[in-house]
Simulated assay, not measured.
Amino acid sequence: MSEEPLTLVQVIRRLKVKLIEILSADADFVLQHADARSLLSPHGYQLVKSCRVPSEKVTELLDQIIQRGPTAAQGLLELLKDQALQETFPLLASVQELQANSVSPEVENNVSKRRKGAPESQDPPKKICSNGCALVKEKQLMMVAQAIGRSWREIGRLALGVPSVKLEQIEEDHSQHSERVFHMLRYWRHSQREEATAARLHSLLSQKNFDLAPENIAFLLETDEEHV
């Protein structure tokens, strides 16, 4: 009799010790990337951030994600495959479970239902899409860049998860403020790929006090037709 595949949360638990060892090399970098993808609740973010020892910070981060369930677990596994994380933590490439895992949260939820004897849904879950669900456009990035002031580096590090090294490179390559901010936003869009939606960018820029007026980024939630 073949074994059932591991659930997403079980994969994280199995890799926990190994991930703590690898990610403790730069725990803050991982935390900001996880926060940029909304893998943690606001309270969970503060709990992780308050940890002073890198290994404890990674341990708390993993525990928070495990508690949030399969969706957060899937988000972490996708984050660990991201190019920025792979480049920062080369040892992640040797973790075979990361490459082998391809289970989606929906599949895991269905498996859990079958184990509990719950009836399976006949129709696939519908995906609700808001006005800003489309990928953010370069024109919108330019408009956001013009709205961001001197706190652009803080926004890049804390809200968008852009590495400090990348911010320094952008600052050296571009002399004009708006160009620096624009290329920072383009880097974020490239790193997030299909998750780089206008609504997500609006959410990230709105979650902390970055001295960014809400009305200056409200256009990110408008319909695509208004910015064609």
Rank of each mutant, 00 (worst) to 15 (best):
M1G: 15
M1R: 14
E3M: 07
E4D: 15
T7C: 11
V11C: 05
V17E: 15
K18N: 03
L19Y: 06
I20P: 04
I20E: 13
I22N: 11
L23K: 08
L23R: 09
S24H: 04
D28L: 13
D28V: 04
F29V: 00
F29P: 02
L31N: 08
L31W: 01
H33F: 01
A34V: 01
A36C: 15
R37D: 11
R37K: 12
S38G: 10
S41T: 15
S41V: 02
Q46A: 15
Q46I: 08
V48R: 09
K49C: 06
S50I: 00
V53L: 10
V53S: 06
V53C: 03
V58P: 07
L61A: 07
L62Y: 03
D63C: 03
I66T: 15
Q67W: 02
A72T: 08
Q74L: 07
Q74M: 08
G75D: 07
L76K: 06
E78F: 02
E78D: 15
D82C: 12
A84L: 12
L85M: 15
L85P: 09
Q86W: 01
T88L: 03
F89M: 07
P90G: 12
L92E: 02
L92V: 00
L98P: 10
A100Y: 01
N101R: 05
N101W: 00
S102F: 07
S104E: 14
E106H: 03
N109F: 10
N110T: 11
S112N: 13
S112R: 14
K113Y: 04
R114Y: 04
A118D: 13
E120L: 15
E120Q: 15
D123P: 00
P124K: 11
K126A: 09
K126R: 12
C129A: 08
S130T: 12
S130A: 12
G132P: 06
A134Q: 03
K137G: 06
K137L: 10
L141V: 06
M142D: 10
V144F: 03
I148K: 11
G156I: 07
L158T: 13
A159N: 12
A159M: 09
L160N: 04
L160K: 04
V162D: 01
V162Q: 00
D173E: 15
D173S: 14
D173Y: 11
H174I: 01
E179W: 00
R186W: 00
W188K: 02
W188N: 03
S191K: 02
Q192C: 02
Q192M: 14
R193C: 08
R193M: 02
E195C: 12
A196H: 05
T197A: 13
A199E: 15
R200N: 14
L201E: 07
L201W: 05
L205R: 05
F210C: 05
F210T: 01
A213L: 04
A213Q: 12
A213S: 12
P214N: 14
E215L: 12
A218G: 08
L220I: 03
D224T: 09
E225V: 02
